[in-house]
Simulated assay, not measured.
Amino acid sequence: MLDWKKGTSEPTGTVGVSARGARGQVGGFWLGRALAGLLALYLLGALLVGWYWSQEPQLFPVQQSAQAAAEQAQRKLVGGYTTVATLKRVAQTLLDKPGGYLSNDIAPPGLWLDNMPSWEYGVLVQVRDLSRALRKDFARSQSQSTEDANLIKAEQRFNFDNKSWALPASEAEYAEGLKSLERYLKALADPNQQNAQFYTRADNLNSWLGDVATRLGSLSQRLSASVGRVRLNTDLLEGQSAAVGAPLSEEEVKTPWLQIDNVFYEARGQAWALSHILRAIEVDFADVLAKKNATVSVRQIIRELEAAQEPLWSPMVLNGSGYGVLANHSLVMANYISRANAAIIDLRTLLSQG
């Protein structure tokens, strides 16, 4: 039975229940505000960390870096050492840059970022192409010679899925590829080991440059398609030969709006990696390039690729129309890439005929 307070018409038990309910509402309100504050702080921290992780690595001096690495390992800087050491450092940058390797992140803030993973993929494309060229061309004297076992393993590791986060993770596989390159470098610098070789010949260099030209040509087309354009469809119909040809039709080629920045940063990644590799090629193939009068051509290619690394002052990749008010960063990048590609085609001509 409830007792009644004097001078009131309300049971004392009801007052107690109401007070506890009010205190519960106040406590829930402050708890909600605390959780919201913590969430806001987390999002702000993730935003700042994501901005820091999205900073592209700076260019590094190739020859000095290779020389320092050789001295630290107490090795002689033999022919080919600069190229392989540069490939190793370029690949190492994917793992050591701020935030590490981001393409396979499954948690914020890496999960929210797409520009840096696209940059990483661009670098990885050039790493894969050069590791393949090392195995099948640079390290072999002729078509019937044996492939280097360390370079076989390096190519396999670098061609692992770039988005794997489970065991084995992409980073672990790429780290194994770096170890294989290191073993090849050790054998290359050891005069007592004759199995590891690096042949600085014009035909070897020309073969790799053919792959580079194909990559840059594709990039140039994808960058130019940011504004959309109509082109003739020159693809042959199935079953028809090139001599007969196929009916030509027009088709619109346009990069999807959400993919424009991805293509742009992939191009920056490829240009970053390729500029370093070509500087190393200029060192190791100095005699070949001088004999073919091609040194200036290599330096011009490097200049175009390094110009593509200029800082992007806009907070986003702008996609204005060709002659519109706003800039189109993809078209600017396409200009540098296509000019570098044209110079590579001229360089290949010099190497084969000069």
Rank of each mutant, 00 (worst) to 15 (best):
L178T: 15
K179H: 13
S180K: 07
L181D: 04
L181H: 06
L181W: 07
E182R: 03
E182D: 07
L185Y: 14
L185D: 13
L185A: 14
K186S: 15
A187G: 12
A187F: 07
L188N: 11
L188S: 10
L188K: 12
L188T: 13
A189S: 09
A189H: 06
D190C: 01
P191I: 00
P191A: 00
P191F: 01
P191D: 00
N192G: 14
Q193N: 14
Q194F: 05
N195Y: 14
A196M: 06
A196C: 12
Q197N: 01
F198S: 01
F198R: 01
F198V: 05
Y199F: 12
Y199K: 03
T200H: 03
R201G: 04
R201Y: 01
R201L: 01
R201D: 03
A202Q: 02
D203R: 03
D203K: 05
N204L: 01
N204Q: 06
L205V: 02
L205I: 00
S207F: 02
S207L: 02
S207Q: 04
S207E: 02
W208N: 00
L209G: 00
L209T: 00
G210D: 06
G210S: 06
D211M: 05
D211K: 06
V212D: 01
V212I: 13
A213Q: 12
T214K: 15
T214C: 08
T214A: 15
T214E: 15
R215V: 09
R215G: 10
L216G: 05
L216W: 10
G217S: 14
G217H: 07
G217R: 10
L219V: 04
S220Y: 10
S220N: 14
Q221C: 02
R222S: 15
R222Q: 15
R222K: 15
R222G: 14
L223F: 05
L223D: 05
L223C: 07
S224P: 05
S224L: 07
A225L: 13
A225Q: 08
A225H: 14
A225D: 14
S226K: 09
V227N: 11
G228N: 01
R229D: 05
R229E: 10
V230Q: 07
R231Y: 11
R231D: 06
R231F: 11
R231G: 10
R231M: 13
L232R: 08
N233G: 04
N233W: 06
N233R: 10
T234M: 03
D235P: 04
D235T: 02
D235N: 07
L236Y: 06
L236P: 09
L236T: 10
L237D: 12
E238Q: 11
G239D: 03
G239Q: 04
G239R: 05
G239F: 03
Q240S: 11
Q240D: 12
S241G: 10
S241R: 12
V244I: 13
G245V: 02
G245A: 09
G245M: 03
P247A: 12
P247K: 12
L248S: 02
L248M: 08
S249I: 09
E252C: 08
K254N: 11
T255N: 08
T255W: 09
T255L: 14
T255M: 12
P256W: 15
P256Y: 15
P256C: 13
P256Q: 10
P256R: 13
P256E: 11
W257H: 10
